[in-house]
Nucleic acid binder design. Structure first.
Lengths: 126, 126
DNA sequence: GTAACTACTTACCCAAAGTATACCAGTATA
DNA sequence: TATACTGGTATACTTTGGGTAAGTAGTTAC
């Protein structure tokens, strides 16, 4: 029977499913945090320092107030960004990366490194 | 004028925009490759060895033939996965990670590590 | 009084992503 | 003869992500 032979050749079919599933969960958790057209651009902008809402809107090119507000809320929920309402006139709101937010640096750098290699590789082929 | 003071406090407003934009491009290139509900699960499954189409469909829980076919085609286009048609009866098609595909390991591990920490952190708060 | 600044929210719309179901041709098995 | 295997494709449907445009509320400058 073919199937049996193929299993043997392909290496282990039985794997630690719970560890594997947990790893996949974790990866998806990380990607969820970064998901969305603007998340990384916002995080990146905030690595240069605190920004107010309108400042962010000007620096993150093309983003609308709705999307900025939504993405910031999600980043805040994940404790990556700290929102501070300042008692000025008019009221201003400051956003900054939390210490926890900066722990994403390694992930982002890794993505960036791989992305650059990939970009070169794929462009070269065309 | 408040604004002037704020700029000084917040550090450099002028940054190397071209380097920065290039980095963002690279990150998005990497995320594009991983985008899609099933990509990472497929890659992960293939790290355990070659798989045929139907084998993948059984192992990647819940995926439809249409999505599997589409995601595999995209992975193949990005040279992460090699597709081999074998002259058996019936014809079988084998998918495997390319060497290039395995260079994603570091990125995926980084995502996984951060995701696990994040998962623990967020769950603890509830 | 009206425009412009602050920081948003709301309602509506479209396109892309994903799901469900059926179908194809060829071969083997009960 | 009917069923199940191989690797997909075709069609229709729903869900989601994100864009557009307008509104809100309070303050200030012209």
């Amino acid at each position: 029977m073919k199937t049996t032979a193929r299993i043997a050749k392909n290496g282990p079919r039985i794997k630690d499913h719970s560890a594997c599933a947990y790893k996949l969960l974790a990866i998806n958790d990380a990607l969820d945090v970064l998901r969305g057209k603007w998340k990384i651009q916002i995080i990146n902008t905030l690595t240069f320092g605190k920004r107010r809402f309108k400042e962010l809107q000007r620096e993150v090119n093309g983003i609308t107030a709705k999307m900025l507000s939504k993405e910031l809320r999600e980043l805040e929920m994940n404790e990556l960004v700290l929102r501070t309402v300042r008692d000025t006139i008019p009221v201003t709101v400051e956003y900054e990366l939390t210490d926890y937010g900066t722990t994403l640096d390694k992930v982002i750098d890794e993505l960036s490194d791989w992305g650059m290699k990939h970009r070169k590789r794929i462009i070269k082929k065309r």
